[in-house]
Amino acid sequence: MGTGDSTMGPGIILVLMTLLYSGAAYLKSEAYFNETAELPCQFLNSQNLSLNELVIFWQDQKKLVLYEFFLGKENLNNVDPKYMHRTSFDQSNWTLRLHRAQIKDKGIYQCIIHHKSPTGLVSIHQKDSELSLFANFTEPEIVQMSNVTGNSGINLTCSSEQGYPKATKMYFLLKFENSTELEYDGVIQTSQDNGTELYNISISSYVPYPDGMSNVTIFCVLKMKAMKSREWEFLSKPFYRVPSHPLPVAHQPSWITAASLITGIFLCGMTYFLWKKKKKQRAVLSNKETTRMEKEKNEGIEERVKIHVPESNDKEVQYT
């Protein structure tokens, strides 16, 4: 091979691949459950090689092929059935997209590129990436397990579902009127779905109330690891606990007392008005009924007079 020959020799390729492998580090890739994951290859293609002279494929840690692009064409013959019709190749950035990612898809993937030379296929690039999967838990839900025992405390349970990875912490948070906050742990139970591998979690606890504090808002807090090494915190809807007996009237604000008094006066006035109106209506109806009865009585008397009293111009009856 001459000094002006630009073709790589086997020795140079071997050294290059050794450097690539020795300095290789996993690329980090993250995706949400049931969404699209990206598996990068990071091939620079500094020699502007044509896709028609390259064989590009991705394989998982079990050496199962996800996708293969063979000399300018997709080749499905070597693709494992679990990945069939779940991938697409973005040629602009040398990235493979894995659609409908499942928890079981997490792990190490390899992008491998071969170049077709006169002597056969030569490996020119390999890059490993680690895929992590996440799924947000549902909003935690608090359920009261028994009635309040006086003012001493309450039995509660809280649950959340369909998350990944495992929650790092779950507890009850009490917030009082004077801005005091208290945390209470409990018995945590975790289960995993055999199909989706998503986690369900619940916590049960007896939550006591400090002396002299009756009005309290309770939250259920769930913490989990999220993308980019962050920790997310999920809160339940507030669960309110109020005193088991009504507040004395003397403790009620003055505007509530005034509003109650005005409302009472208004209702009394409306009641009296309606009673007077109904009384007047009954009086009118009674007068009308009396007038009608007197009219009928007079008409009856007139009829009887017409029948039994003879007229003054009647002729004398003749007998033969």
Rank of each mutant, 00 (worst) to 15 (best):
K295T: 05
S50E: 04
I307P: 02
S132R: 12
S202I: 06
I256R: 14
S152L: 07
T196I: 06
L267N: 13
D185G: 14
F57P: 00
K82G: 01
G195K: 08
L98S: 10
G212A: 13
E316D: 10
F134I: 10
P81I: 04
A226N: 10
F69N: 14
W94I: 05
I103A: 09
F219I: 01
Q42P: 00
N313T: 10
E303Q: 11
I218V: 06
L174I: 02
I56E: 02
T168D: 11
Y199A: 10
N178Q: 12
D90C: 00
K306E: 08
S29T: 15
Y171E: 01
P81T: 15
Y26E: 03
A259M: 09
E296Y: 02
I301E: 11
T3R: 11
M227A: 10
Q47S: 07
M8F: 14
S229V: 02
S260D: 04
K62V: 03
S202M: 06
L222Q: 11
I265H: 04
K166W: 12
W275K: 13
S152K: 11
M8D: 15
I108Q: 01
M8E: 13
V309H: 00
G11F: 08
S6W: 01
E183R: 00
H245R: 15
D314A: 13
Q42V: 05
K62S: 15
V284S: 10
F57V: 07
P10I: 14
P310E: 15
W255R: 03
V216A: 02
H114Y: 05
P208W: 01
S260T: 12
Y32P: 15
N77H: 03
I124D: 04
L39N: 06
H245W: 01
K62P: 01
Y32K: 12
K62F: 08
F89D: 15
T95R: 12
P253N: 03
A25M: 05
T320W: 02
V143L: 04
L174M: 00
I12G: 15
V65F: 00
I56V: 09
K127T: 10
L222C: 08
E139Y: 04
N151R: 01
P253D: 04
K166N: 13
N78C: 05
N52I: 03
L71Q: 01
P310H: 00
V305R: 03
E177H: 09
L76A: 01
E289N: 13
G212E: 12
P40D: 12
S132Y: 07
V148C: 06
R100I: 07
G72A: 14
L51Y: 08
S202C: 09
Q59F: 06
Y199E: 11
S204C: 09
N77L: 02
I113K: 01
Y319T: 05
T320V: 11
G195C: 09
N287R: 13
T149D: 12
D60T: 07
M227D: 02
A25L: 04
M213W: 14
M1W: 12
Q102I: 05
Y26A: 13
H99F: 01
T3F: 05
K28H: 12
C41W: 10
T138D: 14
F33C: 15
Y83A: 00
R292F: 06
E68K: 09
S152V: 00
E231A: 05
P118I: 03
N313D: 07
N45P: 01
E289F: 03
Q91K: 13
N151A: 06
V309C: 04
D80W: 07
Y26N: 07
N77W: 00
N147R: 04
Q252P: 06
Y171G: 07
K82C: 03
L20K: 11
N215H: 11
E299V: 01
